[in-house]
Design a protein around this nucleic acid. Sequence first.
DNA 1: TTTTTATTTGCAACATTGTTGCAAAATTAC
DNA 2: GTAATTTTGCAACAATGTTGCAAATAAAAA
Lengths: 144, 144
Amino acid sequence: MGTKQQITERISALLRDSKLSITDTRVKILELFMRSNGALEHSDFEKLAGKSFDRVTVYRTLQTFLEKGIIHKIPTTDTSVRYAVCKSECTEHHHHDHHVHFKCENCGATTCLDETDVPSIQLPKGYAMHNVEVVVNGVCKSCK
Amino acid sequence: MGTKQQITERISALLRDSKLSITDTRVKILELFMRSNGALEHSDFEKLAGKSFDRVTVYRTLQTFLEKGIIHKIPTTDTSVRYAVCKSECTEHHHHDHHVHFKCENCGATTCLDETDVPSIQLPKGYAMHNVEVVVNGVCKSCK
DNA sequence: TTTTTATTTGCAACATTGTTGCAAAATTAC
DNA sequence: GTAATTTTGCAACAATGTTGCAAATAAAAA
């Protein structure tokens, strides 16, 4: 994972690459993403960081990160929107999200299984496929 | 699809089988599900039915249908919760939802591809799989 | 470094969405 | 039909998401 110093440097580089100003809020939010190796939803930021930043700022920051391809959304069956940091292959214009998401029914954590490829699917005639989202529900490694 | 009369009879039977009272609200909501052959979210009911029933009643009705296995949720990447009627194999205790969901990027409709099976997925060691949700984004038959 | 310009943030106010308790109304059981 | 049970609608509230604008901060220019 690296020292605090290294993480901060990596985050600064990431923001610079995306042509975004380096601000406290953005750095802190990205730190939270990198430390929790799972998906986060909006309410997590208030829980994890107290009220060190405004709700509105969090919404806007996540929106910006989405547009720049720094994070991606993960489908859920509830009203929350869950986000995870993208791998290096993702850019603003081309978004590779061809991995499987795992939601643990015990601890509630959602993780990206980066090594698990999304299988190919044969659609009925007349449908055009752009991308496939897969969420597996079950029990994760640490909860068994 | 059948006549209005036949649909009403089918709905009554469905409610009776689930041991639910047959009420105007429940019948109307099921009618909306059967007529729109796609998934519906909460706001759709207010749009489709005006304010012929209360918001609270819709929430409670959908909750009841979920518990009885009459409808199921479909994962989304936004804050809405989308529902679709289950096939006959679904019951209160055993829920078969092994089909693929398709979200059209053009018309926005979400449909169940009942004939398209969810492919098997090889998880990393240590993970237990309970069920798999697949949502394909693309362009549907009617929008091409 | 200091000044200028552009961007980001926080606040306030609001809009939307979801929840709970309780009395009135409707449905089912008798 | 009447009684018992369930469901509904209202009111009030809680939580979540959005917008405009002035103050604060970061980047660019001098």
